Simulated assay, not measured.
Amino acid sequence: MRQANVYYKSQLAGVLTENDEGYEFSYLSDYLSSENAKPVSLTLPLQEQVFKSRVLFPFFDGLIPEGWLLDIATRNMDISILDRMSLLLVCCKDCIGAVSIEAIQGKEENHV
């Protein structure tokens, strides 16, 4: 299992999780109760319920670079183009726009 903090304009908004069933995204209750709370995406409106998907949510997948920048990331970091969560964690800490992604250290399990 891997997890990442999702920030909206430098405010911690929620947590994205990759697990054996796919992906989950949930907003933090502190963020939801904030008067400045905005959804990170129109496809992920503010709600207490957890969003679930078998594949990486299109919004988050869209944050991953394309073209020559993706080629550089996959080559230099030795990441498969199919490993979308790793690409998101490596490439989207400081992306263009209001949303950024930061890996939560120590949340990865080793599977044998």
Rank of each mutant, 00 (worst) to 15 (best):
M77V: 04
L12N: 07
T17M: 13
V55I: 10
I64E: 00
L70W: 07
S34G: 10
D20A: 15
P58R: 08
N19R: 13
L88R: 15
I79G: 02
L44R: 11
L82K: 12
K93P: 03
A98G: 11
S10W: 11
V6P: 05
V40P: 04
C95R: 01
F59T: 06
W68S: 03
D83F: 02
Y23E: 04
A73Y: 08
G97K: 14
L88V: 06
S80E: 15
E18N: 07
G106D: 09
Q49E: 12
E109W: 03
T17N: 07
I96Y: 10
N76S: 10
I81P: 08
L28A: 03
G97I: 13
L42C: 09
L70V: 00
D83Q: 07
L82P: 00
F60S: 00
S53H: 04
N36Q: 10
G67W: 13
W68V: 05
L46F: 06
Q3V: 01
G62P: 03
L42M: 11
Q49Y: 02
P65V: 05
A98F: 14
W68Y: 02
L28H: 01
L46V: 01
D83K: 12
S53A: 03
I81V: 07
V99G: 06
M1R: 04
A37M: 06
R75Q: 05
P45S: 08
N19Q: 12
A4I: 09
L56R: 09
A103T: 09
E35N: 06
I72A: 04
M1C: 02
L16H: 04
F57M: 04
S10Q: 06
T74V: 10
G22S: 13
D71A: 05
E102V: 10
I96T: 14
K107E: 11
N5G: 03
N76E: 14
L70K: 10
C95G: 12
G106P: 09
K93G: 15
L69H: 07
S80N: 09
L46A: 02
L70T: 00
R84Y: 05
V50C: 14
P58G: 12
D71N: 11
L56H: 05
V15E: 15
N76A: 07
H111R: 03
E109L: 15
V99P: 02
F59M: 11
S34N: 13
T17H: 12
S41G: 12
A73P: 02
L63C: 03
L32A: 04
S29Y: 04
F51Y: 15
S53P: 01
P58E: 08
Y23I: 05
E48G: 15
L28I: 11
R84G: 05
Q3W: 01
N19K: 14
G106L: 01
I81H: 10
W68P: 02
G22E: 09
P45Q: 05
Y7F: 15
K107A: 02
F25R: 08
G97E: 06
